[in-house]
Nucleic acid binder design. Sequence first.
DNA 1: TATCCGTGGGG
DNA 2: TCCCCAAGGAT
Length: 293
Amino acid sequence: MDAPETRALHDAVLDWYDTHARELPWRGEAATPWSVMVSEFMLQQTPVVRVLPVHAAWLERWPAPADLAADTTGEAVRMWGRLGYPRRALRLHAAAVAIVERHDGEVPRSYDDLVALPGVGDYTASAVASFAFGQRHVVLDTNVRRVLVRAVSGRELPAPAVTRAERDVATALLPADEPTAATWAVATMELGALVCTARRPACDACPIATECRWRAAGFPAYDGPPRRGQAWDGTDRQCRGRIMALAREGDSVSADQVAAAWPATDQRERCLTGLVADGLLTQVTPGRWALPG
DNA sequence: TATCCGTGGGG
DNA sequence: TCCCCAAGGAT
């Protein structure tokens, strides 16, 4: 569990984090569990720099789960702005409602209670339990996965989905001490975000470069199953994005506005129907839609 | 398990 | 320019 070589690895990463960690609003003493949870929702597939201003505005407006729960989903979607994947705003609102109903308005501490909330999966539950409450959990995000697959397994990039072997590695490396484990989680994540990046890793600045098996092996290129990029041009996602952008701009959107923004009739209708079904829009009158009130 | 779900910046 | 990808989750 804490073999000497593992201790050395821990110390190197923890020392590096101590001097190189970014000061982020959802870290430090002032950060509330709610602030941490909001950040984790926003950071799902969205870069830190884009989250910062929205996170600040969000917490100013809704300082506690009950504040958000008392407001409309439409306002949550509007405040979400252009972070992308607006269903996350819906889920965060639903999570706030559940926190009020089931946990007396306090973000729950246990992994099981957290993972039961809307929009909270294994990663987010572990992250909140670890970052907000200092607990010992394996926190496997894309950064940690990349760091571990390189340092331990000697490969450039992890497989498309988390494997059992990966989780075993992460579990074996997790420090036994609870607060140390929590710092280890955020430190390995930070290392992946700042140094052991996907494209041009800054191995010169890496605290564990001498112990990295990928580096020792001469940086062999990724040879796993093909990583399929997601199509974008002409997709429903693009169409939905256009419609939601219009809906965010004003009080409502007309059929003519939507038609001007997306000429393909069938797809436009399908996306409007889908957005309503998802709860991202409501039809206020025939041929007019708005963010849900 | 594979696919769907937004948006924008950097190499 | 084009392509990749950024603290995932739900189905």
